[in-house]
């Protein structure tokens, strides 16, 4: 028999609101065994709330050259709050607070009247 088992990439989430994080890769004959191996191989000491295993052959990675596509100029403040910082001063003229990220994310459906 040529070769060994297949390569599976292992991803996990620390808690229910955390993003999936790549852990490492392992060899297993199929998804089921890969899943049974994953936690104890890479997360023996930390909390985990979810695990994904993905066959590496199903992943389209970037080549060294294609990573060039990831570069961009630093002239796009119109898509970030950085480009709208002057609003703080403006709102002050109307005796209003600026709704910044901290303020908006604090609402959580619990706006007090």
């Amino acid at each position: 028999m040529s070769g060994f088992y297949e390569v599976f990439e292992v991803f996990s989430r620390k808690n229910d609101t955390a993003p999936l994080q790549h852990q490492f890769s392992l060899l297993a004959p199929n998804h089921e065994i890969a899943l049974v191996m994953a936690q104890e191989n890479f997360m023996r000491r930390e909390p985990v709330s979810d695990i994904w295993v993905v066959k590496r052959s199903d992943i389209r990675q970037m080549t060294e050259e294609e990573k060039g596509a990831l570069k961009r100029l630093d002239n796009k403040d119109y898509r970030t709050t950085k480009g709208y910082g002057y609003l703080k001063k403006k709102w002050r003229q109307y005796e209003q607070e600026m709704f910044d990220e901290k303020e908006i994310l604090s609402w959580k459906g619990e706006i007090q009247r």
Binding site: L26, L27, M37, E40, N41
Partner: peptide, 12 residues
């Protein structure tokens, strides 16, 4: 039978 299993088995 393989290294990954060795690690998992030992946790159990």
């Amino acid at each position: 039978p393989h290294i990954e299993e060795d690690v998992a088995f030992s946790s159990i």
